[in-house]
Structure formats: C-alpha cells, structure tokens
Design a protein around this nucleic acid. Structure first.
Lengths: 300, 300
DNA sequence: AGGCTTTATAGAGCGAAGCTATCAAGGAAG
DNA sequence: CTTCCTTGATAGCTTCGCTCTATAAAGCCT
C-alpha cells in the first residue's frame, strides 16, 4: 500500500478532475490515472466512477475515504514527528478561524512564530462547521472558534478569551447611550451579520430569550463591511469586543458595551482528539495555555 | 512513504531482532535491514540504535512509534473497508479477553462466525491492561473485559453481562452452607487467583470494605488450576458465575452464590475509539448490542 | 583460536511508477 | 453535419528501488 497512490485518490476526490488533481500532486495526468488504476487493482474494487468523465466515488470509494485520510495524515505526522523529535518545529501550521476570532489569530500566530522560527503559518477564515470538518479530515492542524456553542466532537480545546458584544456607532452619527439595555437595541438602526452566521445566531438566541427580535436594516457577511456601513453615520452595529479592540484609537468610532450575554461565548483553540497528537497540534495547544492576550480581550 | 517499510520498523520494534522481524514479515534479513536503512534515509534520522546488535529505538524512533502504528492500522483498515464495503466480512478478527470472561467469548465468537462466515477469529487471554495497550496499538480489534474497574480511556463499550462471584466446592469435600455471608469466607480453606490479578483485586477490595481479608492456602493464575484443586476435595474456591455455568451438569461440583458484590462488575466488549471505526470493530459492537447470552450469565 | 550469532554489503533481477506522445469519446459551436 | 475542445485512457520507454542470494565483518562464547 503506497501512500502516494492514496494521496492521488484524495486529491482526485477533492478536485473531481484528473488533470487538476495530477497538477496538485506534481505529476502528469497519465501518472495519476495509472496510480488510481493501480490502487483499484490492489484493493480489488473500483473506487471512482468514470467513463470519459469523473463521476464521483463508488460506495467502496466512500467507504475507504476516512481511512485514506487517516493514512495520509499518519504518514505526514510520522515525518513531522521524526523531524521534530528534537530540534525546532518546522513545516506549515494550518490554522482555521471563525471571522469573529480573526483579531486574536494575529496574537496566536505571532507567538507561534516567535517561539518556533522556521515555522510557516497558513490562516484561513472558515465557518465553525468547516473548521470541524477540516480538522476531522486532517486538513487543518488547529482551529480558533467558539467552544460552547455547538462544540465539535472529538476535539481538545483550550479557552483563550471570552467574547462580549459591543455596540458601535460613528461619532456624530447615530447617538447611542453610554449604558445599553437589551430593549434599547430594538429601536436602533442596525446593520448586522446575515442570519445563519453563527455569531448572528448567538445574538438572536440571546434576544429571543428575552422576547426581543432585531430587525437590521442591512446585513452583511463580514465585520469590515459592517464597519464601513457604520462609518457612514446612518447605522450602528454590534461587533465582538475583539474587533472593537482593533478600532481603538480610531477617531470616528464610539463603542459601548452590551449587557453581559451570559456564559458561553468562550473562544479558544481546538485540535483534533483522534489518534496521537501531532507535534504541531501539541505546540499550539501548549502555547494557547500560556498565551496572554493583549488588553481588549476579556480573559476568562 | 511505503507502508511496507513502516511494517518492518514495527516488527523490529516488537521482536528486537533483525532476523526474527524479517521472518515475521516474510522477507529475508538483508531486505529488512535495507528497508530500515531506506526508512531512516527518507526521514533523515536514525531510528534504531545498532552496532552489531539491536540496541533499541532512538528518541526519534520512539517519537514516530505511535504514528507508525497509526499508519499501518489505517492501511489495514483501508483494505478491510474496501473489501467489505458490500459483501461479507472477511479476514481475521483479533479478540482479547480477560480470563474471567473466557466462557463468554465462546458465545460471542460463535455468534460472529455464524453471522459472518468467512471470518477467522483469534482469541487471546490477556490482562485488562494488556487489552487496553493492544487496542491502542491496533494489535487487537476488540476486547472483552470489565467495564467499571479501571476503565480504559479512548474506548467505546457495550455491556454484555454482570459478573457475580460463586463459591465452589467438591461434593463430599469441604462442606459449604447454602447461603453464604461475607464473614463465612474467612473461615474456609480457599484457593484463589494470585494477588495482583484484577479479579482478585476486586474480591479483596469488596472484603476490605467490610474489614475482612482472605488467606487462601493456594493461589494460582487460572481458573482451571483452581478447579483442579477444588476437585481434590480439600479446598474450595471463588469463581465468576460465568465459569460456574461451564460446570453445570458436572457431578463433583457444588456451587453457592456469594452475597451481591454490588454494582461495578459489568463485563462487556470494548473497541478503540480513535479514528473512524473499522468494519470489524463495528460488527463486533453491533453484534454485542443484540447478543443474548445463554442462561447462566446474569443479564444487565 | 575456532565456531556461532548477528548485522551490513554487493550485485543481479524484476516490477512498479514516472514521463512524453497519442488516441478515443463526448459535448459545444459553427 | 463537421470541427474543435475537453477529458480521461493507452502505448512505449526509462529509471528507480525493492527483493533476493551470497558473503563479509564484528562481537560473544567456549
């Protein structure tokens, strides 16, 4: 059983296209074609449906998919473990973070770089569900997400900070009181994240508990977009205090804390709990445990 | 990264001897030697200490050991999954059981064979600790052991039956009362398992709670040995009721139930919870859930 | 010193995996 | 209907690496 062939299989499954998968594996298309054929011959089963075109996995292909991932991840980790048994950590650390946690990733990534020179870090903004899926598929080494809402299974976590919501408005724009009550929110001209985004779901749930509902005038899918809207002065918005920290020093923005949303907004690092833990995951977890976030983040 | 080479490495680690490891892998000794050298070259690290003799693993070797196991297990499971995606289960099911649970393994193994013809089953008697270790090292597919005493981590379990202790004596030998109290035990001429064996530890713990201690005249490491001693008529012993069920119909033996030892003697099937579950483990777990044990076993 | 055990080395054979070049089958567009 | 383009399979060749047998070298034991 050649790890290489299994990598071809996984690449093909991801790309759904022989030539692109081959390019991803840095081999020619006939090589990948032959590799898949060899793998199928060794297993005695057809794994890919195809006649002149890629047509998805057969049931057997689906059945081996988790094991194929496990195999490749183990091979990868084996190499990592050998390389870093002693000596510094090397290679690429793949981090995923929900948008709300992006400001904190700077802190985490910088600390990792500082402690482990020679490390490369790749950060991607993902939904909490994507983070869960990619951790399970070994396509991420660690994630930064909510720990309490819909916590992923088979994961180890270290809390980093507690998120609180802040109301933000432009100076000279929508006037906002210094102290805000839940009921005040319903009367403000708001722009918020789309319904369905996790952060919005949490906010809605908190308000629903109190019999309230928000009617934002604008919805968007990024905090940058919301801040752009707020800057115009016609709207105000609700953002995590971690983002509010980024605004610190901006002259046009005013923020006011929302009432405590209660427990359950902890944000932290998670890694996959399956199998022995890779050196990268171990390092991230260890660092997260010691990490002191700058002021602006509510420590737990 | 060739799975084959990693298998060589694991075999060598198990055997501590190049030629024996080579035989285990069905290759010649130079082949294994070269294979280890290739693996070391690919990883860029020395994995095995050796100068004219095997000298154990280097730190790097130790570091990759869990990943090596993971890799080989994933490769194995991949083959299994492909073969059994549809169609009957094939291959070898490796079961481990504590001695006390041996009588029940007949039931489990038979049911597996009946449902999955074409399956081969290998049963080994192990201590509960060995079962835990070998499950983690992917050298067992499932185990049969106590679920409540020192339960292993990272394992899924299905309870099968509750074990109760029985006093056994020979007809015409040591007279035993029909109803036994804890205090009675101290006065009987007993033979028991060695101290340190888990079953004995449990029994001792139960008695210690009541301020009692047993002074067996003979200790042994198997129930068969104990029964042989009992048959002589000079001693009586304490065995699990699962073994007592085997004696049913024997003319020389008499049994009497001990007082309830309380909760916590559940015996059941456990499988490793790491990674996706292999088809063998899935099948065993599913069957254990439906299994109806014959009379003589206390259902839960 | 001689024999035994244990690991490493040498050289040959063979199979598997890589490449380039080309073909075959659909689908889209003229 | 023809032509072109996309997509995957095939052919033929080369190279690389695993495997074998045979043998050497280095300790250990008597």
């Amino acid at each position: 059983m050649q790890t290489r062939l299994v990598e071809y299989f996984l690449a093909l499954e991801r790309e759904g296209h022989f030539a692109r998968a081959a390019a991803l594996c840095h081999v020619s298309q006939p090589t990948l074609s032959a590799g898949i054929a060899t793998l199928e011959a060794q297993l005695g089963k057809r794994l890919i449906r195809r006649d002149r075109k890629y047509g998805g996995l057969t049931p057997e292909g689906e059945a081996i998919l988790p094991w194929a991932r496990q195999l490749v991840a183990a091979a990868e980790a084996l190499g990592q473990a050998a390389e870093t048994a002693r000596g510094p950590l090397r290679g690429e650390l793949r981090l995923g973070a929900i948008p709300a946690a992006m400001p904190a990733i700077g802190c985490l990534a910088t600390a990792m770089l500082e402690r482990y020179p020679g490390l490369n870090i790749s950060v991607r903004a993902l939904t909490s569900r994507q983070i869960e899926r990619e951790l399970a598929a070994f396509e991420l080494d660690a994630g930064l997400t909510y720990l309490d809402f819909e916590p992923p299974a088979h994961a180890l976590s270290v809390p980093l900070y507690a998120e609180r919501a802040m109301l933000v408005s432009a100076v000279g724009g929508v006037p906002i009181p210094a102290v805000i009550d839940w009921a005040d929110l319903a009367g403000l001209p708001l722009c918020l994240l789309h319904q369905g985004m996790q952060n919005r779901r949490i906010l809605d749930a908190r308000l629903a508990e109190r019999g309230l509902a928000l009617r934002p005038l604008v919805t968007a899918d990024s905090y940058v977009a919301l801040l752009g809207l707020v800057q115009q002065g016609r709207l105000c918005s609700i953002i995590p205090d971690s983002h509010a920290a980024l605004l610190d020093g901006l002259r046009w923005a005013r923020t006011a804390p929302l009432p405590d949303m209660g427990e359950g907004s902890r944000v932290g690092v998670i890694v996959s709990d399956s199998a022995p833990m890779g050196p990268l995951a171990q390092a991230v977890l260890a660092l997260a445990r010691e990490l002191r976030l700058p002021p602006g983040f509510t420590t737990i």
